[in-house]
Design a protein around this nucleic acid. Structure first.
Lengths: 317, 317
DNA sequence: AGGTTTAGTGCAACTGTTTGCAGTCTTGAA
DNA sequence: TTCAAGACTGCAAACAGTTGCACTAAACCT
């Protein structure tokens, strides 16, 4: 049925170990034999069985990637980049979705453990304790969370938030609202402390809010009541919802109020007005995470963010 | 290091085969032994090694999913649903991205072949010949393409297109433009033939166009020149681009022209105006595809589409 | 010429699990 | 009491590769 290393060995008159070596350690076999084996293998349509190989070597050449929600526009670019990086080094990528449930993380990592050489975890919700225990079973790298002992890649939201507020200040907005995210969010705190450091603007925080379009929509009234002319939103979805909410209240963006989002997801680029936003280097993060994993380096990296100025911000009238 | 079936056997005083059976054929082992083995396994943190299991059984409990572009908003909901369906039956999912290159499809399927029990292929671009050859190596199911011999799940775009044009007709639009997709696209042809069957509307096709926002943007001038007051776009991205293009020409949607998209991607739901569109059952397709794969049934299914009426269509003035 | 290195290959054990076959021990029936 | 039938369990051979070790032959030194 399926053609194995033994078939190739028989057909090319050498021992299986030689065939094995022509694939996994070509320099150890004579050039002539090697090419003979190779052509025979080609003819027979032989491909080494990775599972069998994994059994002896202990390396599967597979990686796992766990995110909270595949369908959240924030993740696909990250997944895509991770996949590309993996492919480039001949790794395959399992992708899994926790559906925002912390328990699923543990379950998935456990399930992956024997089947992958490592897993990249995006913004995990599990406790440090759980994660540290899990780290003993599988190597992993975490994205967007500080975790002692594990390789980490962070995106410097703080810096981006600062740039955003400075941008608003530069446009003459002295009273800016911070439409923050869910209570206890690490990112939300990060944004706030950075934003507060910009001189010359009076920052008022609104929240906690759901990190969704609805959350932003609901915050519109408060923004108006506060009389803010500039807004930094927790993320692009919130910003989009907010813009809609403001519209319903008769305020238009950017004429009456300037709003900047965070993330730079596709819908923000397509929306009208096109969203000014802090671009998160999601692709770079995905790529880097798998590179770290494959090379087994345990570093903690902080990726730069940048401000993308589009149509949702303008000078104060 | 890693705890194997032998460790569990030793620790619970039975032979490995008994341990094996308590996991893969529990009814064959005495209840008392079973529970003893189970608790020992639990204590030791044993999890069966799937790769090793695959070696003897020939079933990996892994599935592959190949799409053209993970970051295209059309796919994530499909991937998410496929993943959920797979998890539910204790399968893991490899996700791969061809980056729109047909050659990558073949390469990926080959690479997957020994490692999965089947693969689901979304709108493959490879030739029938290639696909038929590949089908001998791995079972697969195709989404959005007719392929003799392979299990297939289709989404009935034709019906959706028809509903869309009828909707426009009902709003009084008698001259509707069809902003079509790339040359040779199966979907594009499908849409056209269905749309043409609606009585009472004069249909003019514009195209071929790139299936992107830019493609739609570029088509705006022709739509205006043709004097169409209703438009059916190849997909939501095209629709969004078109709306923007029309705006630049001084035409607003839906006041001056009504436009309906196809797909129902997230950005369309968030955009202003919110897009009226033909919803493609991508989640259902993903779920169904993996179910078919796991149950090894070779059927061809056609999923219903429906029209979602939002704010980008209105009665003709 | 004799000894030593080196390149290339074969041998066989090993990876962790499944499974057909055979053996043991009960249990129930005749 | 004897036998057959079950119910469990053990044995050992797969599955498809990898790899340390041993071996042969040729090439290199002195």
């Amino acid at each position: 049925m399926t053609v194995t290393i033994r078939d190739v060995a028989r057909a090319s008159g050498v021992h299986v170990s030689t065939v094995s070596r022509t694939f996994s350690a070509p320099h150890m076999v004579n050039a002539a034999t090697r090419s003979r084996v190779l052509t025979v293998a080609e003819e027979l349509g032989y491909r080494p069985n990775r599972a069998a190989r994994a059994l002896t070597t202990g390396r599967t050449h597979n990686l796992g990637l766990i995110v909270a929600d595949i369908a959240n526009p924030f993740f696909p670019p990250l997944i895509k980049a991770a996949h590309a990086a993996a492919r480039q080094r001949d790794y395959h990528l399992f992708v899994a979705d926790t559906d925002e449930e912390p328990a699923a993380e543990e379950e998935l990592i456990q399930a992956f453990s024997k089947q992958v050489d490592g897993v990249v975890l995006c913004s995990p919700r599990s406790s440090n304790k759980v994660l540290e225990r899990l780290a003993e079973r599988v190597p992993f790298v975490v994205i967007n969370r500080r975790l002692r002992g594990a390789a980490t890649v962070l995106m410097d939201v703080g810096h981006g938030a600062r740039l955003a507020v400075e941008h608003l200040a530069g446009l003459g907005h002295t009273r800016v609202a911070l439409v923050s995210g869910p209570a206890g969010s690490w990112t939300s705190a990060e944004i706030r402390t950075a934003a507060e450091q910009v001189p010359g603007v009076e920052l008022v925080a609104i929240g906690p809010n759901a990190p969704t379009e609805r959350g932003g929509f609901a915050a519109a009234a408060r923004v108006r009541d506060l009389g803010a002319t500039g807004v930094l939103a927790y993320n692009d979805l919130v910003a989009i919802g907010l813009i809609e909410g403001l519209g319903d209240l008769g305020l238009s963006v950017p004429e009456d109020v300037s709003v900047v989002g965070i993330d730079d997801i596709v819908p923000g680029r397509l929306n009208r007005p096109k969203l000014t936003t802090v671009a998160m280097p999601t692709a770079a993060a995905g790529r880097l995470a798998v590179d770290l994993l494959i090379q087994e380096v345990s570093a903690t990296t902080s990726l730069e963010t940048r401000l993308v100025i589009r149509d949702s911000t303008a000078a104060r009238r």
